[in-house]
Design a protein around this nucleic acid. Structure first.
Lengths: 199, 199
DNA sequence: CGCTAATCTAGAACAAGTTACAGACTTGAT
DNA sequence: ATCAAGTCTGTAACTTGTTCTAGATTAGCG
């Protein structure tokens, strides 16, 4: 019920690392079909070839599991983005371009997006550290796109608002309440804040 | 599993209206204690003096119930805001002031806020109409604060981003990942977008 | 190798959201 | 006032996330 103290996790053995991978893989695969609801802990455990208790030892809840899945996907995305950086003239264009590229990646797996986004926003305090990690990685991606050495406090505020918009627009998109054009407009609108802070 | 077609709901008898009120009241009271988890359907039914099946006839899921609870609270808020409109000079100041007032109202009942915000963002497609209603009311509150007759498309975009920021910052606040000062800063930053669209 | 602690497995058990159903009660129209 | 249709009640069952337990396996160490 309350958050656990997380002592710096001991290094995993090879077989444990493999188990962890299998679990995350199974999670992503099931999510890729029916979304959040299709990720059922018993099925994940079976697909990963581990006992239910073991699954819970690795990921203390379904939300933890899905947030970890998201961390994983974000890593892939960040790597892909580094390979081909955005080409826009201004910082705000580059950020918007980057986020739209991320969005198109999500569009390719809408069910997976559903599972990850719902888990991320439903997460309670016990998952805060993991959600923070996701947030930091997102921030890093945006700052990368801006291409700044030392962002000013005003710029960091703008980035925060852009991130809020990003998360919330994803929610409305996965729940079918926003069209793809709407997503694009909202992201671009939020990105204008960057121009406001660097004239 | 899939969304139902909702035929324009027939008018409720007096006793039915009373039942509905009792249910919403019980929901808000339980939420006011332990938040989302404390709103347990069996307990709501018992506290409202209706059978479990009846509760589900009025609100087809826990999420529907909590979103309806939010609609209810928003109405109260909107009424209170109309009585004492925001006093700021510029539109963006007035919007920021209004949202901060709403935020202070939520702070007074943090558990209730938790329940409503979590439900709102976890809602899937089957709850879209109800969530849309909440969104429209929020938009109305913001437009009221701006005090405009005919908002331009650009201004409507800005309002959308402000709303995204509002929802997302609430999520981070209820999950303990953002301080109250952070909330204030983020709201004010988003509101700057309004100035950008009306020079 | 042989021991000990940690980990893993299989499966039962529990909790809360949701559904199903039989019988009692209301409502509205005649 | 009576009847049919719709609603409500009480209760059990079902589903899926989560916890627990007893015994098998594994890892690390002397």
């Amino acid at each position: 019920m309350t958050a656990e103290v997380r002592p710096a996790s001991p290094p995993l053995t090879e077989r444990q690392e493999a188990r962890r991978r299998r679990i995350l893989h199974a999670s992503a695969r099931l999510a890729g079909r029916g979304g959040f609801d299709a990720v059922q802990m018993r099925e994940v455990a079976e697909a990963a070839g581990v006992a239910l208790g073991t699954l819970y030892r690795y990921f203390p809840s379904k939300i933890h599991l899905l947030v970890a899945t998201m961390q994983d996907q974000l890593d892939h995305l960040h790597a892909a983005l580094r390979k081909r950086p955005p080409a826009g003239e201004t910082a705000s264009e580059r950020v918007a371009e980057t986020l739209m590229r991320a969005f198109r990646a999500l569009q390719r797996e809408p069910h997976l997006a559903d599972a990850m986004v719902r888990a991320l926003t439903f997460a309670d305090r016990s998952v805060s550290p993991e959600v923070e990690t996701v947030s930091r990685r997102t921030t890093a991606i945006i700052l990368d796109a801006m291409g700044l050495e030392q962002p000013t406090p005003a710029q960091l505020s703008a980035v925060r608002v852009i991130e809020h918009t990003w998360h919330s627009v994803l929610i409305t998109w996965v729940s079918g309440r926003a069209s793809i054009t709407q997503v694009k407009t909202d992201i671009e609108t939020a990105c204008r804040l960057i121009d406001l802070t660097a004239p």
